[in-house]
């Protein structure tokens, strides 16, 4: 009896069941929304969630704080902008080169800073993020400075994907906005799948052990420095890809994509949604993208209300939204 119930629970909250549910919700979303504005929000949620899923591997699972992750997002976006407009690379080639470049960059900066612990690691990642934002602001010839820089539309297999376009597929007509949403949703699903695979592997176990007990990990044969660096690079590449896509989607970026505030927003998504909960951080991303929409009613009080919500959630649900809710449901069921 007890076993049967455990089995049932397993299927319900098994990560891959969650992935199926996520794909289903994303696929059915177009039935619920009608206008371009809604699609725009959905696309932004998917891209933000992609960064958060990657960051969660680093912060939630491996327990290494990064307060500068927007730097990698910004680096991806700017690398795509510069490679496409100044070096005439095709957007997909630029995106992949940017991801590779950002991965190498993360590897280089990660090596010296990832042996830091606790608040010193927070400080170092924060510092890297602030420096990146200042560089983007000041290197005007390359980045356009505070005014920002434009990007061409994304092109896939020779077809341009513009938010203003209209496309025919198998007799159906899609707007560019709809296709962008589908693309972002597909990227998110793939990002989640890869993350779930990592977590459910020897690599994932080693990463979680870094969080649980670094000493246990070491004596069990885990080269902790190497694994910290690995997950740092993986999460940076996630951010870079999402940044590149966002750049092509919005067609224009400014240094705010790499700002300290954006880094804080990203870590907030992870902690608010639930550390070490891949689906929790997707909910976190949705909330942080949507909240400004609901708060426009408060107008001048927007910041006050947002700050208050943030504090309240973290005080009353310190483990984050999804894990806390699941825990309560579980307790209720028993």
């Amino acid at each position: 009896m007890k076993e049967a119930r455990a089995m049932k629970k397993n299927i319900l909250i098994s990560p891959y069941g969650g992935l199926l549910l996520l794909a289903l919700i994303l696929a059915l979303m177009p039935l619920a929304v009608s206008n371009d504005f809604h699609y725009d929000l959905l696309t932004k949620i998917c891209l933000t969630a992609t960064v958060a899923v990657g960051l969660n591997l680093l912060v939630g699972y491996a327990g290494q704080v990064s307060l500068g992750h927007a730097a990698f997002y910004g680096a991806g976006a700017y690398a795509s902008a510069i490679l496409t407009s100044q070096y005439n690379l095709s957007p997909m080639v630029a995106l992949l080169s940017a991801a590779a470049g950002v991965g190498v960059m993360a590897w280089l900066v990660g090596r010296p800073i990832l042996h830091l612990k606790g608040h010193y690691l927070s400080m170092a990642t924060l510092g890297l993020g602030v420096i990146a934002a200042i560089v983007l602001n000041n290197e005007e010839q390359l980045t356009g400075g505070p005014d920002g820089v434009g990007l061409p539309p994304l092109s896939l297999f020779g077809h341009e994907l513009s938010v203003f376009g209209e496309y025919q597929f198998a007799g159906l007509t899609f707007t560019g906005v709809e296709l962008w949403y589908l693309l972002a949703a597909a990227v998110l699903v793939i990002a989640v799948l890869l993350a779930l695979n990592i977590i459910d592997s020897p690599l994932g176990r080693a990463l979680r052990a870094l969080h649980g007990s670094e000493i246990a990990a070491q004596v069990a044969g885990v080269d902790t420095a190497k694994y910290k660096l690995r997950v740092f690079v993986i999460s940076a590449v996630y951010a870079s890809v999402a940044g590149s896509l966002y750049g092509h989607y919005s067609g224009f970026i400014t240094p705010t994509v790499a700002s300290f505030e954006h880094s804080i927003e990203l870590i907030t998504i992870v902690v608010l949604g639930g550390m070490a909960s891949t689906f929790g951080v997707i909910i976190g991303a949705a909330i942080l993208v949507l909240i400004p929409q609901f708060l426009t009613d408060f107008q001048e009080l927007e910041m006050v209300v947002f700050g208050a919500i943030l504090m309240a959630v973290m005080i009353f649900l310190p483990r984050g939204l999804l894990p806390s809710v699941l825990q309560r449901l579980q307790r209720g069921a028993q």
Binding site: V59, V65, L67, G118, H119, S122, I264, I267, T268, V271, L272, M275, M303, V304, F306, G307, A308, I309, L310, M311, M314, I315, P318
Partner: peptide, 15 residues
């Protein structure tokens, strides 16, 4: 958690 406390103080600063 340490990170949670960081987010709380960030919430306070925004507030």
């Amino acid at each position: 958690d340490v990170v949670t406390l960081i987010i709380i103080t960030i919430g306070a600063s925004i507030f």
